[in-house]
């Protein structure tokens, strides 16, 4: 496990990976979104508003997987004291918070023309809002201690506790009567027509790579900032 713990080894991987993720993600997202927004057909019922699918759904998937990643990072930070785990946790939290905010905002804009309302307090929308607040809570806890190690520990605990919200988001549309429709893509297939599904999956891959590049860049920033403060402390002591 600690084979990858060495920051030098991580940086050797992360430097090219952040660039590859960024440029690859930009290209794939551009193809996917162009495909969805300009080339894919309009929906039989929703018309043109369905084009918000290609940004809303990827950000929803990614903010949920980002939270799962946050919990994994928190778990490895707590159990194995993995030195990169709390860096990953601190890097993921703000990026995930932005993605969940984008999901909520695009969902709200999509809700107005289709449902006839910007917001309702149904199970899916409310649990997604809770996810956004969980991200904010993790950021706040990590910053609220003078000793950064302690803040990361508290944030890890919150990240793990918040994990229960993920199945609540996923199954909210089945457990309760919600305004939000049930899942379109399930293990048994997709109720999204192929002409819309493929651009959606392409956009999700591209936007996912962009998210990964943002997380990698933040991890590099945090590692460099730690190096700087360690060196300054050593200089002050000398």
């Amino acid at each position: 496990m600690h084979r990858f713990a060495n920051p030098a080894r991580f940086l050797r991987l992360a430097r090219p990976a952040s660039a590859v993720c960024f440029w690859g993600g930009l290209l794939i997202a551009a193809i996917g979104l162009y495909w969805g927004v300009f080339a894919a057909p309009a929906d039989y019922l929703q018309g043109e508003s369905v084009r918000m699918l290609y940004i809303h759904v990827p950000t929803a998937w990614l903010s949920m997987s980002g939270y799962a990643g946050l919990a994994i990072a928190g778990f490895s930070a707590l159990v194995w004291r993995h030195p990169l785990a709390d860096v990953a946790l601190l890097a993921l939290a703000p990026v995930g918070a932005v993605f969940s905010a984008v999901c909520l905002i695009t969902g709200s804009i999509w809700g107005r023309p289709t449902w006839g309302t910007w917001w309702v307090w149904d199970g899916r929308l409310t649990s997604m809002l809770v996810l956004f607040f969980l991200y904010l809570g993790v950021i706040a806890l990590a910053r609220s201690y003078d000793e950064p190690g302690r803040g990361a520990k508290m944030a890890s605990i919150l990240a793990l506790l918040g994990l229960v919200n993920l199945p609540i988001i996923k199954f909210s549309v089945e457990w309760w009567n919600t305004l939000h429709q049930p899942a379109s893509i399930t293990l048994s297939g997709s109720s999204i027509d192929g002409s819309m599904l493929w651009p959606l999956l392409t956009s999700a891959l591209g936007i996912g790579l962009l998210m990964a590049s943002a997380v990698l860049m933040r991890m590099r920033a945090l590692i460099a900032e730690r190096k700087v403060s360690a060196r300054l402390a050593r200089l002050a002591a000398a």
Binding site: M52, T59, V98, V102, T106, I109, W110, R112
Partner: peptide, 13 residues
């Protein structure tokens, strides 16, 4: 609405 959603997403991401 579509334009507004993509503008918001572009600003955020």
């Amino acid at each position: 609405f579509v334009i507004a959603a993509y503008v918001a997403a572009a600003i955020g991401i």
